[in-house]
């Protein structure tokens, strides 16, 4: 599903360089990525999502070499294959719950042609316990509910790959646990591969395996 080889990435004017000699994640796996702050966890997710392109090495997802694609092609790839969950949810406050869930279809022309319609939104929202709140403005939701909306938005296009960046980072421990369980459950139901970055080592047991990015980088020069 995901293959990274000899990947090197450095932001402009940054002294730190992310190095990933080799990383493989199989389809359907639920993988947690841990590392100290600033080690490049989010950057790694962005490389896998095709948001960033490495300066060296190869990133292949579903057999597609992302480094070889242009910006538009990587965007389309992202729309079709990747669902993204952000730490601070990044919902649009001027849209209601249903519109936020459906947002990928509203903003991507290619995806719009495959819009499953309101029924799919309702079904997914019901699975996430948001069935009664579809027309509610997101600013009137609790943090936990917002995270559930963000999960639904990531899953609406039925992506093969779900990338979650600190999905419980903005939630209290109890709510975070509930959100993670939902994330894992929805990933299972939708048969998505899940790669989640987390600080919370207490949650690692819920994943199939854990990748320590610091250890991974230290294995050898990329």
């Amino acid at each position: 599903m995901i293959r990274l080889e000899q990947v090197r990435f450095r932001y402009d004017e940054s002294p730190y360089e992310l190095r990933v000699p080799a990383l493989a994640i199989e389809a359907g796996e639920k993988v947690a990525i841990v590392a100290p702050s600033g080690a490049g966890k989010t950057t790694l997710l962005h490389l896998i999502a095709g948001i960033l392109v490495p300066q060296a090495g190869s990133v292949r997802v579903n057999g597609i070499e992302l480094s070889a694609l242009g910006d538009a092609a990587r965007r389309d790839f992202r729309c079709e294959h990747v669902g993204l969950v952000f730490q601070t949810f990044e919902l649009l406050e001027y849209l209601d719950v249903a519109e936020n869930i459906r947002l990928p279809y509203l903003v991507n022309r290619r995806l719009r042609a495959k819009d499953p319609g309101e029924a799919a939104v309702r079904e997914l929202a019901a699975q996430a316990g948001l069935g009664e709140k579809l027309r509610r403005g997101v600013e009137r939701l609790s943090q936990g509910e917002r995270q559930r909306v963000a999960l639904c938005r990531a899953l609406i296009a039925r992506p093969a790959l779900l990338l979650a960046d600190e999905p419980t980072g903005s939630l209290d421990p109890a709510t975070g646990r509930v959100a993670l369980d939902l994330l894992l459950e929805l990933a299972r139901v939708h048969r998505s591969t899940l790669v989640a970055v987390t600080h919370d080592r207490g949650l690692l047991g819920a994943f199939d395996r854990t990748v320590d990015l610091a250890e991974l980088s230290a294995r050898g020069p990329a």
């Binding site: 990044e90 903003v107 991507n108």
Partner: peptide, 16 residues
């Protein structure tokens, strides 16, 4: 700016 970045990450072109 964050909203624009989010839209881009979700598959919206910068032109859009």
């Amino acid at each position: 700016a964050r909203e624009r970045e989010t839209l881009y990450k979700l598959g919206c072109s910068r032109g859009t």
